[in-house]
């Protein structure tokens, strides 16, 4: 392997490490949310700093790579996608931390399990975790065959998010004591929905890198065909 290739694979490995960290943040925040475990939630907040540090390091490594090696073609696409993926992972890390804070503040952790069921909260978390790990595998294996499936999962999350608005509205209407908690829960689901969007962006970046396609802004339909 040439030294430029070694630099690139080191860069990719850094992004993979960051990614594994972010997946575990989302897994932990699910655990914290369902158990109300404040300790776990605090742990997430403290590990958020490591996510941020990864982003800074990856940014500067990408800048250096571009400045020193003027990459083109697949190498250029890789570096550009690493910059975007790491900044997107950082955003996902922020949302995980935001949800962890919600647990620490402990104002409405124990919403009743029937409502959790109705909102399909666990399914939302699990779908996100699957999206994150499937896209991780897509990058590791440089295989974009699953990209359509991952993007479809984001639509599932969007649907659950839209339903949650109705569900929470009717609960708040029926029980005004629930309004504060209902709003908080809505904000939380909104964060989860945003994680799904970010995950889709990551998938688009992987496809750009691997297949040199641009799925953004309507290109997605073409890619499905």
């Amino acid at each position: 392997m040439k030294h430029t290739e070694r630099e690139l694979s080191a860069l990719k490995e850094e992004v993979s490490q960051m990614w594994r960290l972010v997946i575990s943040q989302v897994e932990k925040v699910k655990q914290a949310y369902f158990s109300g475990d404040v300790e776990v939630a605090r742990e997430i907040a403290s590990r958020e700093k490591r996510v941020d540090a990864f982003e800074l390091k990856i940014d500067s490594d990408c800048e250096n790579y571009i400045a020193l090696f003027s990459p083109v073609a697949v190498d250029l696409r890789l570096v550009l996608s690493m910059i975007k993926i790491s900044s997107t992972l950082e955003r996902i890390g922020d949302f995980a931390e935001g949800i962890a804070r919600h647990v620490v503040e402990n104002e409405c952790n124990k919403i009743d399990s029937a409502l959790l069921e109705e909102l399909q909260m666990e399914k939302i978390f699990d779908t996100l975790i699957t999206m994150l790990s499937d896209s991780y595998v897509a990058l590791e294996s440089e295989n974009t065959k699953l990209s359509g499936k991952i993007l479809a999962k984001d639509n599932e999350i969007d649907e659950l998010y839209n339903k949650s608005v109705d569900i929470l509205t009717s609960h708040m209407r029926a029980n005004t004591d629930f309004i504060a908690c209902g709003l908080k829960t809505f904000l939380l689901i909104r964060k989860l929905e945003r994680i799904g969007d970010h995950c889709s962006n990551i998938v688009e970046e992987i496809v750009f890198y691997v297949d040199a396609k641009v799925l953004k802004h309507g290109g997605r339909e073409n890619a499905k065909r």
């Binding site: 040439k2 073609a73 697949v74």
Partner: peptide, 16 residues
């Protein structure tokens, strides 16, 4: 220089 069609082109311009 962003997305060549041919593998040979890519190998050449990326120095591989």
């Amino acid at each position: 220089f962003l997305s060549p069609e041919k593998e040979q082109t890519q190998n050449y311009i990326t120095g591989r």
